[in-house]
Amino acid sequence: MTTALQLRDLKKSFGSIEVLKGIDLDVEEGQVVGIIGVSGSGKSTLLRCIDFLEQPDGGTITLDDRSFNAAKATKDDIQYMRRHTAMVFQLFHLFKYKTALENVTEGLTTVRKVPKAEATEQAKELLELVGLSDRLDHFPNQLSGGEQQRVAIARSLALGPKVILLDEPTSALDPEMITEVLAVIKDLAQSGRTMVIVSHEMNFVYEVADKVILLDNGQILEQGTPGEVFDSPKTERGRQFVSRINLSANAYKVGDFQI
């Protein structure tokens, strides 16, 4: 396996608050990495630093064969990261005056300069993949939360990213919509996409992730397979965190949802 994304000593502070205190992370190609931790532990900031929605203060980022100092990233580096990773947001952030189809074609036509007809073809395929073939001409405000998030996933896939970053993709959804979105993400995981997921759906992370990272106070507290992190945490704080999760109680039956 080759490494798709590598972070070394990634740091980020907001004012005097150090949110990321030097994160080392390796994401192999085709791997699904789940990032868990309490609120404020730096999970979202970590993802946003990878996509340069926040400017990291230090560290090295390597994506494929390109490596650079994150604190001194050039415009070119930032553009490289953004074009080869994709972000799925907690609140979807679909372009509100564009239809589902246009949301997906936008990156293709504007960023990649793909001819419109070709982009439309690709976008239709992607929307079919997430089960929204009948919603092509709907605007975000005409879609349910789950549908919006599925469009957002299709949009993130459009540019063929090396790594997909999902920032709490189901936190803003009703329970019944969570299932449909998780089903789509699981599908992607099984088709060999490389993903980094920040999530509070512990059952889902347990089921889908190849590797789990437990962040605490801007540092990696535990990492390993889901079994290692959830079932036999090495640290005291890790045990505390895991003990508060009841893995079976809030289980969503992902398998029941058919696209």
């Binding site: 929605l53 953004r82 952030h93 509100k96 005056y97 949009r155």
Partner: peptide
């Protein structure tokens, strides 16, 4: 214009000018 709209545009690799023209100005 919501910050999220601009972040979404950046995340799919739009440049500042593209974001302005395709997202900020229309909204």
């Amino acid at each position: 214009v919501e910050k999220g709209q601009i972040e979404a545009a950046h995340s799919i690799g739009m440049t500042g000018w593209q974001t302005l023209r395709r997202v900020i100005i229309p909204e």
